[in-house]
Design a binder for these strands. Structure first.
Length: 355
DNA sequence: AATACGGGGCA
DNA sequence: TGCCCAGTATT
């Protein structure tokens, strides 16, 4: 199926040097305290596209609030989102709770340990499946993430575009061949630690690398040129007016976002899409949408926020209304002190400063 | 095969 | 700014 890349590669020597290095140098991380599959699972979901240092405080708090699958399954979704607030990719939290509920109902609370059952859970893709199977259940399954592709693209001198799906398949194939069958958990985590601390995206410190003698890119002096990755396209800029609307009771208006799409089910200050609505028509548009009159003051400031695929440019306005509710009950008027009970995206947490 | 989906840190 | 990060689901 694949070429002869692994011909003449000293697999057992590579495994031994990598795993011994890991055992002496592994990072002390909270989810490495034990092999509890639930802890491993939660950590792997949080770590998707997210740095270790960012995850650590969330992990502690989340495990304290939801120590086992049972507490998480029983929790209110808003509570789970609140615990995820600021971490991003909020569908991870929703999918995790959905999957945990399935584990409680279908598997009597025991996290399944077969690739088929585990991989069928919401939010558990090829990487997370392999990570849980290897780390929690000691099974020799590949867990191919960005680290693995970077490390092996260098070690094996693979010059295919790692942004392509078929390239990832290649790495899964090679990792399956290379992974230690005696200690797959240490092997997979060793690659991650190596990628995070030595085989870094820029300026890898090859002189400190425990497996540099096996590294074909290092041998050829092209480690900085790998991996090859095609560029992402630029984000579109989307302008909005964000409104901090106070009523005469001193309450502020917020609303919950749709259950689907961007920042699903999170809360926000009402926003007017300035692509469709002219500056002079904001109050009219608001009345047509929400059924109440508001008086918009002058612009108070601006918040820019970059997502992976778009940029929000938010002009902040303060506004007043005489109403205590809106026409269709889309808005919720809350006391300032109660704002922190609701999960807000980071962009709208910044708007709280204008209160 | 491409796109949607967050947010932070770093050169 | 642009790139990267312990990716997955949807189209």
């Amino acid at each position: 199926m694949f070429n002869d890349t692994l011909q003449d590669f000293d697999i057992s020597g590579f495994q031994d040097d990598l795993v011994s290095w890991y055992k002496q140098n592994k990072r002390d991380l909270p989810w490495r305290e034990n092999q509890d599959p639930y802890r491993v699972w939660v950590s792997e979901i949080m770590l998707q596209q997210t740095k270790v240092d960012t995850v650590i405080p969330y992990f502690y708090h989340f495990l304290e609030k939801f120590p086992t699958v049972y507490e998480l399954a029983a929790a209110d979704e808003q509570e789970v989102l609140k615990a995820w607030e600021g971490l991003g990719y909020y569908s991870r939290a929703r999918n995790l709770q959905h999957a945990v509920r399935e584990v409680v109902e279908q598997y009597d609370g025991e996290i399944p340990s077969t690739p088929e059952q585990l991989g069928s859970l919401k939010g558990v893709g090829p990487y997370t499946k392999g990570a849980i199977l290897s780390i929690a259940f000691d099974q020799p399954e590949p867990a191919v993430d960005g680290n693995v592709m970077r490390v092996f693209s260098r070690v094996l001198k693979i010059e295919d575009d790692i942004a392509q799906a078929r390239t990832k398949k290649q790495f899964e194939h090679y990792t399956r061949e290379l992974i230690s069958k005696e200690d797959p958990s240490s092997f997979n985590q060793a690659i991650m630690d190596l990628g995070a601390t030595i085989c870094t995206p820029k300026a890898p410190t090859c002189m400190l690398c425990p497996v540099n003698e096996y590294c074909r890119a290092f041998d050829a002096g092209i480690e900085e040129q790998l991996p090859v990755k095609s560029k992402a396209k630029k984000q579109k800029i989307v302008p909005y007016a964000a409104l901090v609307i106070m009523n005469e009771a001193g309450q502020v208006a917020i609303e919950q976002r749709s259950e689907q799409g961007l920042l699903a089910s999170l809360w926000q200050f009402p926003m007017i899409p300035l692509v469709e609505v002219g500056q002079d028509h904001m109050e009219n548009w608001f009345r047509s949408q929400y059924g109440i009159n508001i008086t918009i003051g002058s612009k108070e400031g601006n918040v820019k926020h970059t997502f992976s695929h778009l940029k929000w440019n938010l002009d902040i306005y303060k506004a007043k209304t005489e109403h205590l509710t809106d026409g269709n009950n889309t808005l919720t008027f809350v006391n300032k002190e109660d704002l922190d009970k609701y999960p807000f995206p980071v962009s709208h947490q910044k708007i709280k400063n204008y209160l």
